[in-house]
Design a protein around this nucleic acid. Structure first.
Lengths: 200, 200
DNA sequence: GAAATAATTGAGCACCGTTCAAAAAACAAT
DNA sequence: ATTGTTTTTTGAACGGTGCTCAATTATTTC
């Protein structure tokens, strides 16, 4: 039943996102349902649709929360001043994905269908991640141009992502592999070493 | 209405798979529906469920068809006797995915939910792909052990897959990148070169 | 207070995957 | 041919989904 003055619009939105995130973490995208989220928050399905417009809108906000958590997770790892910052990033990428498999997978499985490209703030988060990685690479390759750094960051993220996706989905028995994150890290080191050699 | 003697069970199964594959290619997994497949084939939804048991079963068979097409695609590329077989494999991986984005994506997006691991024949197809790649790597690294070759094959496939997934999903504006497949190929070459050096 | 405005609701719509008693078709025996 | 048996095919029915929007409820305004 209505609890009109209990929550502002923003509080209500945050409530839906938080509880939606939890449900997604429990059930995965295929069993996720807007009605369940509304029931858990204690508002009606109609209110949810007033706030988010569509299931896509809700899922987009939930994925944004996952990206934020992921970003914070990586920042926390770097804040520990690890001796090897590149290794910390790669391990962080894997650890977050393996600790939050369902919400992590939802980022990649939820397409905005026709609705064209992702919204600006979404693209911005992605650009930030690339820029941060490029920064770390810059300390290893001080002679690389900004555009070279961006391309390399994208390629290294893709490399790590491929290994991580296989590990999370357990494709090719990747988890049977002693250490998929270690494998990805080896690939990253090879690339950086090759770039270092080429620039010398 | 029934067309009982028009098709054997196997013909019927093949019909459902073919038409299902086409629908999947047109609509993508999120808009895919068993009723639509049945309607297109001209049999009832009930018959589809007798043949496949569930939507999961149908999708599994459709994904198997995609894997077969992909495998044939790669074999055809290699059959052209390209000067660089590794490059042919990487380009083939990308070209098939970009030419069949929806059916390719469905392979990775369709989880068997709880139903445990993928069926044996599915694992077998995966193992075959890894083995074939390992064979190609073996010609470049004649001194590597079989287990080293398998691990390297898995890692290189993961590397290529990561770049390809970003290209197909257009994550990080990967398609804005001049040549994502070329980028993946560079990473593969670096790894092979590093392995060659280490074994020398 | 009453009137106007804003927020919230949930039955209703068209669809989904899935089931299963009944109907239709094919076959077997006489 | 006719009957009985078996196999194949059907599609209405069930509980669920995303989504809408007239109607209800709560708040604010005067």
């Amino acid at each position: 039943m209505g609890r009109r003055s209990d929550h502002t619009r923003d509080e209500l939105k945050a409530l839906f996102i938080l509880e939606g995130w939890r449900l997604l973490a429990e059930t995965g995208l295929s069993r996720f349902s807007a009605r369940d989220v509304a029931k858990r928050v204690g508002y009606s399905i109609g209110t949810l649709y007033v706030v988010f417009g569509s299931l896509d809108g809700l899922l987009l906000s939930i994925n944004a929360r996952t990206l934020k958590l992921w970003s914070d997770f990586l920042a926390a790892r770097l804040a520990e001043n690890p001796p090897d910052r590149i290794a910390a990033l790669v391990r962080g990428y894997f650890d977050f994905a393996l600790q939050n498999p369902r919400t992590w997978m939802a980022i990649y499985e939820h397409h905005m269908a026709d609705r064209g490209p992702a919204p600006d703030w979404y693209q911005e988060v992605a650009a930030n991640l690339i820029a941060q990685v490029a920064e770390e690479i810059a300390t290893v390759l001080p002679n690389a141009s900004p555009s070279q750094l961006l391309t390399m960051a994208r390629s290294l993220i893709a490399t790590v992502h491929g290994h991580c996706a296989f590990a999370v989905y357990n494709t090719f028995d990747m988890l049977g592999e002693n250490d998929p994150a270690g494998l990805a890290l080896m690939r990253v080191r090879e690339t950086l070493a090759a770039a270092k050699l080429a620039s010398a």
